[in-house]
Amino acid sequence: MKKRNITAQELRDRLSKDDNYQRKMKEKEAKREELEDMLNKDEEPLVLELKGLGLDIDSVWDLVNNLPHQFLERKFTVHYNTAYETLVKHLDFDYHPKTIEGIIRALTEKEAKEIAADKILELFYKETDKNLKWVMANALRTLMTWSKRQKHPEIGEVLKGI
Rank of each mutant, 00 (worst) to 15 (best):
V88T: 09
A8V: 11
K2D: 13
H90P: 01
D58S: 10
Q9W: 14
T86K: 01
E44A: 14
M38E: 15
R141A: 05
I103M: 02
D19Y: 12
L132S: 09
A137G: 07
Y84C: 07
W146K: 14
T142V: 09
K17C: 11
K110V: 07
E114Y: 07
R4F: 13
K51I: 01
R14W: 15
L11A: 13
W146R: 09
I103V: 08
E127D: 11
Q22E: 10
L63C: 06
A116E: 00
M1L: 08
L143T: 01
F76Q: 00
L46D: 05
E111P: 08
D18M: 04
G52Y: 06
K130C: 04
L143R: 02
L53Q: 00
Y80T: 03
M38F: 12
A106K: 00
K41H: 08
L48K: 05
L91C: 05
V60L: 02
T128W: 08
P68L: 08
G102I: 03
F71E: 11
Y95H: 14
A139T: 06
E49D: 09
E85K: 12
E10H: 13
M38C: 04
E27T: 13
D13M: 15
K51Q: 11
T82W: 00
D129I: 04
D58G: 14
A106D: 00
L67F: 05
W61V: 04
M25H: 10
K41W: 15
E101L: 11
G52R: 02
K17Q: 12
L132W: 06
E85M: 05
K28G: 12
K133L: 03
L67Q: 08
K28Q: 15
M38N: 13
L107C: 08
W146T: 11
K28P: 10
K160L: 08
E122N: 12
V135K: 02
D94M: 05
H96P: 03
P97Y: 09
R14G: 12
A116F: 01
H69C: 03
E29H: 13
G156D: 09
Q22M: 11
K148W: 12
D62L: 01
A30V: 10
R12A: 13
Y80I: 03
N66G: 04
V88W: 00
L11E: 09
V60R: 03
A139W: 02
L39F: 08
E49N: 05
V158P: 03
E101W: 15
N40Y: 01
L107Y: 01
E101P: 03
R32M: 12
Y95G: 04
V88K: 00
L67G: 09
E109Y: 06
R23N: 14
Y125Q: 14
H96R: 06
K75T: 07
M136C: 04
D56S: 13
G161V: 06
Y80V: 00
P97A: 07
M144P: 03
T142G: 02
L53A: 01
V60I: 04
E122V: 07
L39R: 10
P153E: 03
S147R: 08
D42L: 04
K98F: 08
